[in-house]
Simulated assay, not measured.
Amino acid sequence: MAEDSLRVAVMGAGAVGCYFGGMLARAGHEVVLIGRPAHVQAIEAEGLRLQTRAFDERVQVAASADVAAVAGASLVLFCVKSTDTEAAAASMLPHLAPGTLVLSLQNGVDNAERLRTLLPQPVRAAVVYVATEMAGPGHVRHHGRGELLVEPGRGGDTWAEAFRAAGVPVQVSADARQALWVKLILNCAYNALSAIGQAPYGRLVATDGVHELMREVVRECVAVAAADGVEIPADIEATVFALAPSMPGQRSSTAQDLARGKHTEIEHLNGYVVRCGQRHGIATPMNATLRTLVRLIESGRTPAAS
């Protein structure tokens, strides 16, 4: 391993974690993917299959189902579902070195804040712009984008150049909180609808009535964000509707979770907007309806085995 190589642990090696961990491992960094046994076994047997628009390769990378594998890492990519943040952080804490930098690569806007209440290590929020899915055990399929926007903070930024050299664009920005809210709005507009219809984004927005519904979701989110002290860019609707043409074949992570019988992050997406709206006295009927419908579908499905 070269002197400037990173020692990285990916906590929660699903589609997002496997993509970024795989890109770093492909560039020669020491990476361990911590995930479900089925994925770990496949990666140990044949490597991680990293299928992107530019290449389709088997990347040799360490994998483990044991959280203790985070030991020795100077950087942790924290990629667990928002519903698992506290439990995963508590299990990881005994194995972390004091100066380990933890980057939260998660959906939602409050994960880094929640992590800081549990971990003495430096924690920074990252806004993730990537379209990926697990196409099978040990097989991540990349549909587009792949950049990170990270809030400034403790831990320094020397790691960022290594990411860029590995093909992962990184921007460190004081506007990260606004960007987290913009990403939340995108998720609120697309995730539940894609999940309810099990529809990719291209087919979703081509469906009669969907544009009007999404506009109402966005308006509610913008009102709640403003009440929470976050100014959303005026062109947010254009940003929302530009997403589908850029990745028409992508299904939301919520749709993928429902299709696999897994619990979703809906409470940290539309559900978060509903709760934040309640705190500020703002009605959010569209977000509340989407949250309820996804929860209804969840309640009729058996959770997937670990």
Score class of each variant (00 low, 15 high):
residue 5 S to W: 01
residue 182 V to G: 05
residue 170 V to R: 05
residue 120 P to G: 06
residue 297 I to Q: 07
residue 88 A to N: 11
residue 39 H to L: 04
residue 40 V to H: 03
residue 110 D to N: 08
residue 219 R to E: 12
residue 41 Q to G: 13
residue 289 T to A: 15
residue 305 A to N: 11
residue 151 E to P: 10
residue 183 K to E: 10
residue 275 R to G: 11
residue 305 A to F: 08
residue 295 R to L: 14
residue 33 L to N: 12
residue 13 A to E: 07
residue 24 L to A: 06
residue 270 N to K: 00
residue 128 V to S: 02
residue 255 A to R: 03
residue 203 R to L: 12
residue 187 N to D: 11
residue 285 P to Q: 02
residue 11 M to D: 08
residue 264 T to N: 09
residue 80 V to E: 03
residue 270 N to W: 00
residue 10 V to K: 04
residue 39 H to S: 12
residue 47 G to P: 08
residue 103 L to M: 05
residue 137 P to W: 01
residue 7 R to S: 14
residue 91 S to K: 14
residue 235 D to A: 07
residue 218 V to N: 11
residue 243 L to G: 03
residue 242 A to I: 02
residue 138 G to C: 07
residue 132 T to E: 14
residue 146 G to Q: 03
residue 250 Q to I: 01
residue 72 G to Y: 01
residue 34 I to E: 09
residue 235 D to F: 00
residue 275 R to L: 10
residue 291 R to D: 03
residue 43 I to M: 10
residue 304 A to C: 08
residue 58 R to T: 07
residue 150 V to E: 07
residue 77 L to W: 01
residue 69 A to R: 01
residue 176 A to D: 11
residue 259 A to Y: 03
residue 96 L to N: 09
residue 294 V to R: 02
residue 11 M to Y: 05
residue 237 E to M: 13
residue 88 A to R: 05
residue 116 R to N: 13
residue 200 P to W: 03
residue 223 A to K: 10
residue 138 G to V: 05
residue 125 A to C: 06
residue 39 H to D: 15
residue 289 T to D: 08
residue 251 R to C: 12
residue 91 S to M: 10
